[in-house]
Design a protein around this nucleic acid. Sequence first.
DNA 1: GCCCACTTGG
DNA 2: CCAAGTGGGC
Lengths: 257, 257
Amino acid sequence: MQIATWNVNSLNVRQEHVLAWLENNPVDVLALQETKLTDDRFPSAAFAEAGYHSVFTGQKTYNGVALLSRDAPTDVEFALPGLVDEHKRVIAATVAGVRVIGVYCPNGAALDSPKFDYKLDWFAALAEWVAAEAAVHDRLVLTGDFNVAPRPEDTHDPDKWEGRILCSPPERAALEKLLDTGLTDCWRLFEEREGRHRFTWWDYRNGGWARNAGLRIDHVLASPALASACRDCRAHVGERGRKRPSDHVPVVAEFEL
Amino acid sequence: MQIATWNVNSLNVRQEHVLAWLENNPVDVLALQETKLTDDRFPSAAFAEAGYHSVFTGQKTYNGVALLSRDAPTDVEFALPGLVDEHKRVIAATVAGVRVIGVYCPNGAALDSPKFDYKLDWFAALAEWVAAEAAVHDRLVLTGDFNVAPRPEDTHDPDKWEGRILCSPPERAALEKLLDTGLTDCWRLFEEREGRHRFTWWDYRNGGWARNAGLRIDHVLASPALASACRDCRAHVGERGRKRPSDHVPVVAEFEL
DNA sequence: GCCCACTTGG
DNA sequence: CCAAGTGGGC
């Protein structure tokens, strides 16, 4: 079973990229972030044509998440319980016996911004909910754009990034708390393998991609039952080099179930 | 000798259209309107590559005119003398012994708008200057987007257009005053010929092109010496059907000199 | 409708 | 750098 995540930065603009990628990579589940689409505009028909069910919750201009799946999703939830939040950042569903939670975590803007406090509160609410879900679902995947690079080696330039937004101690602690609920960052199981690329996001600005100035901020986190069955986890870095790319690339984890 | 006019509605967007069209239609002079480019951004090099000299006067967002020519232009003028005008709407040059005046006449907005008064004042100043130029230059062409359809038959639907902006009596009188200086509307010399299309502009709105709801508002006006040498005048209507077209098409007049 | 400038978010 | 919204012009 393959489960993937991709922050598409506007599904309107990236719809053809996603369809083409799914054609070549017929994963079982794809979590999308930053669809930037209200639900009435979600292109369900195009994905159905490609053999995918879709569930989604979105808004104009910002945020918006979706889950595409080959098998029909059940027990769909469209928000974090226990947090009043205008932003559409969470969607969960059970697919083929696996609980999949797709998230678009807040960016945080800057350490001294109110948005940073929102980010930490949001992670705390997520951790609480994921702990509850993990208690119920043996097979659970939490995936998406976390806007946190967990370690110095997950940045192209630790001297530049350590302590800054996406790499600060409070953000890393917040991510760590998610892992403390018993989840494994699947990518780390395979990072020593050949041909593994280290990053999942490259800023549009300052030629981030040309300079390989990236971060690893998109993750697939798996419960013990799934982590032990994980056979691969990689970023599809080539997508960043296409025309009109998203600034994020897909990350795919494979499980032997 | 072929002299053409084209309101490109942003040369930034239409640069490739113009280059492709010139490749197939290597006219001697092409007058452009609505370049919407400041002079520092005018793509002279691309046109030089294609074998054209260029002179231009433009501004950000609005207006902007240019003359492209195979032969080097001389005696270039960049404005209407005798009118203080922020708008870059006029450019004149002598090319191969022909005085070419390229104009982007004001639209006028609506009959009761101050912009309408500006339009009439602008035409009056143009007529005065053209009369002076015509006295000096035997071979003279005044061409561009005049934003006036001279006669009912220059509209797709006279019942709708007569009396309205672009077709009102004062505007037609203002255009007539230009012709009174001894100029001929070249298109009328050939309008009975087969395969002649009647319009040069179709509104982007309401499927103007699909409905052939056009107007003839782009003209080539020639002095007697040139009018008697005129062998053809036609609109290149096919350009309106291309991808991301301007709302205007090129109009080409041919002179046997 | 389409194009531009400006703003906000990242 | 890229995307989306607003507002003006035609």
